[in-house]
Design a protein around this nucleic acid. Structure first.
Lengths: 225, 225
DNA sequence: CCTCCAGGAAAACAAGTGTTTAAAACATGA
DNA sequence: TCATGTTTTAAACACTTGTTTTCCTGGAGG
């Protein structure tokens, strides 16, 4: 209750400001004034701006990774000992992501934050996320490995990141893209629609034939950087 | 020459600092001190920080869009009147991107900047890029449309952005990913390698079967945001 | 010679930043 | 009710930010 309504007001305000403007571009005075809370409250309750940023992420990622873990538990039980098909794994991940708004209210904010975590400098964030939630991701990729034994490890690694890029890029830039799409194809897309569109694309990408190796001289004027 | 060696020193320094730290996180004092140039020089030569950012982009995008235009000209001549196959279009785009380092020296910086342009708030940048270089992109997508007549317009739109996400996300986060990949699969990837890996994935993604429409209730707990 | 003026250098400017301090208000259990 | 510990508040602090201003330099052209 009153047990620091301030804390949640700060978090609620911070997450949407961060999502729409980035971390460096959002000042504490920005947050606190919009949340109608004293400026010092952030440092009092969280210690620093960095800690506030991490708290914003934790509020999304804690329940998410927990849900994901139990979802994977169920899968492993269902396919006891056997291999879980790739489609099922992807489907599970998708539905876990889509379940986020059940407790927090904006999937859009969640995806945007993830996008920022990658693109923004903020080295401390990537480190924090990695060491805090890295194990779920590791567990997931291990299951993907078993589901795609034909893929060389390196190839699978890259393809997973390709798909991560697709999802995060699309869903985190959703607003801008949605505007264009609505204007050109007058169609009002929801996140759920997008996930529906993503499914066959991701599956096809993971099943794509292996790249031909080293067609030398294929690209004129190509220099490594 | 002395005809403002200062200008290029500023641009050279700014582009790498921007690429590795972002725009807001890079101060003019940061740039000018590293470039061993007076602080006021930026405002003298460019007018403002925003203008400097745009100048950094222009130095990459001007030659790029020019090259891309002539490459498309050649393609249209070669396939006079006919449809240019999707693979050829993608190949052309890839080699145009890979040709960037021929004049500017870092493909990595280029991709990182593109990534920032999307993810960073910086509304002015997206607008600038859109109205300055939007026509090449429009032309390219029109050719893609002709090459993929079976795809509904909206579906093609989204798939193109999916792939844009893949490429920009991967290539702009290249350094971090490369470190992980090198550690786990001791393999030293170059940008060229990545493009080679990307090719079949992108092609497969574009040719993926259309999504099933509306399997209602497929995702439990799913709420739109 | 002097003028002119693009360019460089140092300093100041006003505004905004995260963080800290110290006092006040509040709540709660003894 | 009083003392205790927790929150809230306003003010200040110590910087950093982008931008301007002012002065100084060094040639080119008349």
């Amino acid at each position: 209750m009153a047990q620091s309504d301030t804390v949640t007001r700060i978090l609620d305000t911070a997450e949407v400001l961060f999502a729409e403007r980035g971390f460096a571009e959002t000042s504490l005075r920005n947050i606190t004034s919009k949340a109608r809370v004293n400026l010092a409250a952030v440092n009092y309750h969280f210690g620093s701006k960095k800690a506030l940023i991490q708290a914003v992420f934790a509020r999304y990622l804690d329940p998410f990774s927990q849900r994901f873990h139990t979802a994977l538990d169920e899968l492993e039980a269902r396919y006891a000992g056997g291999v879980i098909p790739l489609e099922v794994l992807l489907e599970t991940m998708a539905s876990t992501v889509l379940a986020v708004p059940a407790e927090r209210n904006s999937l859009k904010v969640f995806m945007r934050l993830l996008g920022l975590a990658y693109s923004q400098a903020q080295g401390h964030l990537r480190r924090y996320i990695q060491q805090q939630y890295g194990d779920v991701f590791t567990r997931f990729t291990e299951l993907v490995r078993q589901a795609t034994p034909h893929l060389p490890d390196a190839e699978r690694f890259w393809r997973l990141h390709f798909m991560l890029g697709t999802v995060i890029f699309t869903l985190s830039g959703l607003d801008a893209l949605r505007d264009i799409a609505a204007k050109d194809y007058n169609e009002q897309v929801t996140v759920k629609d997008l996930v529906r569109r993503l499914r066959p694309v991701v599956v096809a990408a993971m099943h794509a034939p292996l790249p031909l190796l080293q067609e030398e001289g294929h690209y004129a004027n190509a220099h490594a950087s």
